[in-house]
Design a protein around this nucleic acid. Sequence first.
RNA 1: GCGCCCGUAGCUCAGCGGAUAGAGCAACUGCCUUCUAAGCAGUAGGUCGCAGGUUCGAGUCCUGCCGGGCGCGCCA
Length: 580
Amino acid sequence: MNVFAWFRERIAAEVAAMAASGSLPTGLDTTRIGIEPPRDPAHGDLASNAAMVLAGPAKRRPRELALLLAQRLLKIEGVATAEVAGPGFINLRLTDTFWHARIADILLAGVAYGDSGLGEGRPVNVEYVSANPTGPLHVGHGRGAIVGDALAGLLQKAGFRVTREYYVNDAGGQVDALARSLRLRWLIAAGAEPADAFERARTAGEVQYGGDYLVPVAEALLAQDGDRWIEAPEQDWLPAFRSFAVAAMLRLIRDDLEALGIRFDVVASERRLVEEGGVDAALRFLEGRGLVYEGVLEPPKGKVLDDWEPRPQTLFRASLYGDEVDRPLRKSDGSWTYFAADIAYHLDKFRRGFPVMIDVWGADHGGYVKRMQAAVTAITEDSGALDVKLCQLVNLLDGGEPVRMSKRAGNFISLREVVDRVGRDVFRFIMLTRKNDAPLDFDFQKVTEQTRDNPVFYVQYAHARCRSVLRHALAEMGEEALSDAVLAGAALGRLTDPAELDLIKQLASWPRVVEGAAEAHEPHRIAFYLQDVAQAFHGLWTTERRTRNCASSISMTCSSHRRGWRWFAPRSSLSHQALR
RNA sequence: GCGCCCGUAGCUCAGCGGAUAGAGCAACUGCCUUCUAAGCAGUAGGUCGCAGGUUCGAGUCCUGCCGGGCGCGCCA
C-alpha cells in the first residue's frame, strides 16, 4: 500500500462527493492535489495542500474549504486527527493501528514490497556504459554503469518493461587504431619486431592504445591464425585484427561489468547497423522530410580554430528542433559521422518499440544532448522522447589525497582494480551517493572505513544488527515462528514507542520513494532513503537497549523489507562479512 | 563568445511549488552489568551566489547578472 497515493485518492473522492452534493462546483481539477509527509513531524503524518489548490477555482477561502474537507477525512478509518493549519494545510495524524497494519503489508509482500504499477508495463530502453571497445573500463565508466543499472532496476520496480542496452562503437576510427595497436603487439609476439618496439611507438604517439591487455590478445591471435599476415598490406590484415581485437575487448568489458553484477539484454553494434544500411535508411527518412541539406557552417564563435576552412557539408537541420546550429552527418572522406550513426541507432531503438529512451553518458558528451534530442524528435516525428543522464567525473582519492592517474605513466587505475579492492556493493552504493550530475569523490580509505561517516558501512551496520536480532530469535523461537506470515499476525499493538513508529513510517514511505525516484529518473534517491531507514533503525536500536523492551518484530520487518531493495545491490549485497 | 551543469551551515552534500530549510563531518555535552557503543541522543552553526518576476506560497519555476566546471566542424 502506498499510503500517500491512497490518501490522495481519498481526498479526490471526497472532493467529488462534495461536488455531487452541491457543496462544491463540479469539474474541479484534482490533479494538483498533493500529499506528503510534513517537514515538521509535529504537523502530523500527512499533509495536503488540497484546500489551497482548490480554493481559487472553487471560489472559497482556503481555510474554510480545508475545514470542510478535514471534517470528512476524519471519518476515514485510521485517521486519528485532521487539523487545519497555516494558510490552509490539512494535517492528518494516523492511528498506531493503521501504522501497525503496514508492517503486515510489508511482511506479506516480501520482495514485492514497493512494486508499483506506475509504468503500466510501458517499454523503456536504458542505454548505458557503451564504452568504446578499446580497452578495460575505467572508474568513470563504472559510475555510468551503476547509474544506468540502478535506474533500470528502479524503473522495473516501478512497473516499466525495461531493456538494458549497450551500444558498441565498433565502426569508427577508434577501433581501427585499436587494430593497429594490436598489430604491433602481434608483430612483437611473432618475433618480427623487437620487444621494445611497442614502448617506442607509444612514446612517439604512433599507437593509441597500448595497455598490456593487448599482449595476450596478440598471442591468442598468433596461436589461432599463425603469422600469415606479416608481409600483408594494411587493407588485408586490418579487418581481421579489428574484429579479433573488438571481440576480445568486449569480453574484457563484459567481465568488468559482471564483477559489478551488470548484464545487458541487448548489445547493439554500430558496425552491423552501418553494414545493414541502417544509417542510409535513417538519412533517407530525414531527407524525405527535407531535414538534410548541403551547407556551410559558420566557425564557432569565441574559439580559435587555426585550420578553419568553410566547406560544404551534409547537414541535419537540428536547429529546427532546438539545437543552436545544424549538425554534420558526413566526414570529408565520405563516411558517416558518429552523430549520423547515432541517429540511425536511436531510430532503430524507436522502431524496436521504445518511444521512451534513456541514455547515460559521461559529462564530456554534454554538448551532444541537444542535437541528439533534436534528432530523436525528428525521427520519431515527435512521438518519442530521449532523456540523457550525464554523469560527472569521479575523483579517486586515498585518505583525502588525490590518486594521480596518467595513462602515460602507466599508473592508470582501472574499474576492475577498484572493484576488486573495495567490493561490488561498496562500489555500487557509493556511486549512488551523489546526483549523477554532481562530481563524486571516491576515497579508498573512507569507503571501507567502519564509521558513521561512511554511508555504506552505516547501512550495512543497520542490516547486520537486524540479522543479529534474527539470529538470536531463531535460536530461541525456531524458524516456524519467524515466518513472514506468522509475524504479520503477531501482536503488533505493542509497538508504541516513538522510535518504533518512526521506523514503521520510514518503511511505509518506500513505495512513494520508488515512484518518485523512478518518475524523476534519479536512482540516487534510493541510496539516500536507505540511509534514512538505517538512521531510524539505529535510533530504535539504542532506545530498545535503554528500555530493555525487545521489539524484535521491527527488526525482522526491516530485514524482510530489505529484501525488497535487493535489486538495488544485487546478490548477497550489503554483506556484513567486513564487520567481522 | 555561445550552450549545458553547478552555487544551500566552516567542510561534504540532501531537499518532491508548501509551513520555523535538513543530514553527516569537524567542535562541545551526555548514553554500554543486557541481542553489535564501529552505535545513539543533545548543543551550536544559514542573507539557500545577487537582483527582479510568476504564484495564495519559491532553495525549488522564469529572466538578467556574478562565480566555478564541462563542451563547442570531418573524435567517439
